[in-house]
Amino acid sequence: MIEFIRVNKNLSLTLLLSILFFLRKGIQYSLIGNVIPLLIIIGFIILLTTSVQKSRTAFILIARIWAIILIILSTIRLLISIIHLTIKPFDNSFHMTHQFSGYSIILSILMLILGILMLRGLSKKRIKDWL
């Protein structure tokens, strides 16, 4: 694991940031009664840490799936934001408006960039061998 981080600093950082974001969300929801997001992120962390120590191919596959999930989630958020801002605003719900405008759009863009950076970093040419 330490060797992987040492040779793939940028990829490790993007992975860590995305995991921290969802881990925070998971803990936040588990504290208010919904443990599913936390179970999902813990499951992913277990898969990732196991694969990074055992198989390069498995690790790349799992990390790619994670990156694609990140891209899909951020794209859905951005699409909803665009619909809210241009086609049909959620005028009746402040919660939804707040979730899909301003700071949230920046967050969605950052998530999308993280996902793309991760996918790029996971190409066989770019990723450095650590095992």
């Binding site: 969300k25 929801y29 009664g33 919904n34 599913i36 999902i40 989630l73 939804m96 979730q99 949230s104």
Partner: peptide, 17 residues
């Protein structure tokens, strides 16, 4: 207070209420 949204799929996308 802070409570979850209507389903966990929405929870993955947005913050709680």
């Amino acid at each position: 207070y802070s409570i979850p949204n209507t389903n966990f799929g929405v929870d993955l996308l947005i913050e709680p209420l």
